[in-house]
Design a protein around this nucleic acid. Structure first.
Lengths: 197, 197, 197, 197
DNA sequence: CATGAATGAGAGTTCATTCAT
DNA sequence: AATGAATGAACTCTCATTCAT
């Protein structure tokens, strides 16, 4: 029997915290700042969360999972159709991931790597990140295997190796992006050219 | 002579801080902890540094530059010899970078990404990181160009693109390493296979 | 009729608060905890009480007065009968006081001493406690005087002195009980032996 | 290599806290108040203690142990002399305990009972209190036994029972004292009269 | 050079209380 | 009568920094 304003406030807290976290990291973000930024007082933070840590988990689950659940459903469905072109699917996963988040790429990337760093001291976050990576990896692997089965992707390299390479490259490009050395999409295409026969 | 112990202490502070930073990040690291870990009290920290920020810059400059200065000299020298095999040089840069640091890979990587994250709120760090990336990129680029000139590396792809790709991959694999999904060296070889004719 | 649940709720608040107070003291007891323990939310506390302090007074009056009003009536009535045996009356007052409360001794004692401590910073409580002690003292004194008049209790000691002694002993044994050094009833009998001729 | 001012400040913190605790109890006593009352800021509290709890233990050990260690030595020594009058020894233990503390009785008693209440939620305090009571009980018991051996104290009652009774009475009178119903020393003499042959 | 005492700002958290619904 | 959102003051504790010794 929650009140609408409560749900709304909670959402605004998560949004504000997500943005602040991208800028300064989770530890450097104070509850006072979050609440001030949405025009509330810090006491009321605890109406919506039991602790600051709980807020982190909420951010993780609602803002940082790269929307795999929805994306995975779409991809897997398209994968089951015949004939199936896998290259656009892969590009969807690797290149369009940020746009599908409805989020500024730098904000998202920055928040994500803040989380990665934070995972070193928080087991829950560590577990979540690992499982998140596994989901992504598994999804990519499905697509690559399908590509190999249908003769679209080279078969002289193991599917899992290709998958790892793609994940590594996407993450690496995220990092370069943060260091202000963005890599253009054409470069990513070259990797794809190498993969596809 | 009379300052010998002082210089020694300063070095020990940097070393201790570097290791603690890899674990917990720079913000979460207290001066008290650093000094306790080397058997001194926090008051004397300010004998060696004017502020905590100054310590960060010292760490950056002495422990986190991937040893490019030394590495660059060696590489450039070998590059000027004839004949010159570039593949081992590239592997040296990408694969052996951590061993040349005399440092545990996870410690170094972790510290580096803590710094990366920190750069979002500190312009000095941001500038340093960018210039650091540029040095590395420039070094790699020299090697790739030499490889193309001597017919060892494919020329249908721009040297800068190959360089970016390699940097991205190395960084991406670092990240996977931190998420506990290490990538074996064989996989990196495949990327090299693609590059080399 | 329509307020039946309201009155019921108020009673349940007092009961729950009494038990929590015995465990943790009045200050350490939060309205949230009390209301949660009876399945209500803290907002509705203020339907029944104007403040937390008011709740304390309600507890004092309904749960902590050792039931003297009822007890006193019984004792005084029995005291007016002839012949009257005073020893069982005294034992009733001193030894059976807890059972007559329908309450666990440790709970009651603990709550009472929490209140005693609280009295140092609350004048209302202080006054109440003093008046409570006076009532008890007065009741005991009546019995002792009757005992002296009828030759059952030694007369070489002033009635008030005997009364004080008994009160002190009962309270002292409460304290020992709380420190986990319970005193058995036989010991109390010895005090009585000393009093009675 | 502590500084004199540090030791002095720590002592002043304990003194101030002891007095505030007597008035308001340990939980209601804020570090801010303590430090303000001695003209220091609350940040410096943690130079001397690691936590508020540690302060409680310091108070317990330095201000609340009724000085039994010193008292016990004196009593036991006098007990070994021949001939030995035990009545003054008992009176010393029961009546002069507060004066030997160099402390206002109400302050001491109040602080002690605050501690007793606090013991319900703190095992360290509980253990300490019990052991404290045991020491006191043991000391009293020695004196009573000596009194019985030398024919000064009645032997128709077990020594331990007499000990318990005395402890209970002293504690009970403390309580009456707090409720503002002080018991005069003459009354305590009557208890002694009963004991001594 | 090193120490330990002191500072003051700010952190996360709790809680009695108010109030629109 | 009951709810849950919001407030604001108070709490314990942390920490970069300063300074007399």
């Amino acid at each position: 029997m929650k009140y609408a304003t409560g749900i709304e406030t909670k959402k605004r807290i998560v949004d504000a915290a997500f943005k602040l976290m991208a800028h300064r990291g989770f530890d450097a973000l104070s509850i006072d700042d979050i609440m001030k930024s949405i025009g509330r007082t810090k006491g009321s933070f605890y109406v919506h969360f039991n602790s600051k840590e709980e807020l982190l988990y909420e951010i993780m689950e609602t803002r940082l999972d790269r929307g795999y659940n929805q994306l995975a459903d779409e991809i897997l469905e398209e994968l089951s159709r015949e004939p199936c072109q896998v290259r656009p699917l892969l590009e969807k996963i690797t290149k369009e991931v940020y746009s599908s988040l409805g989020e500024n790429r730098l904000t998202w990337t920055s928040a994500f790597y803040h989380l990665l760093i934070h995972s070193r001291k928080n087991e829950v976050v560590q577990t979540w990140l690992k499982s998140n990576a596994e989901q992504w990896s598994s999804l990519l692997n499905h697509v690559v295997e399908k590509g190999q089965e249908t003769g679209q992707i080279r078969t002289d390299v193991d599917a899992q190796v290709i998958t790892n390479m793609m994940m590594g490259i996407v993450m690496g490009y995220d990092i370069l992006y943060m260091i202000d050395r963005p890599v253009n999409d054409e470069e990513v295409n070259l990797i794809h050219d190498w993969m596809f026969v």
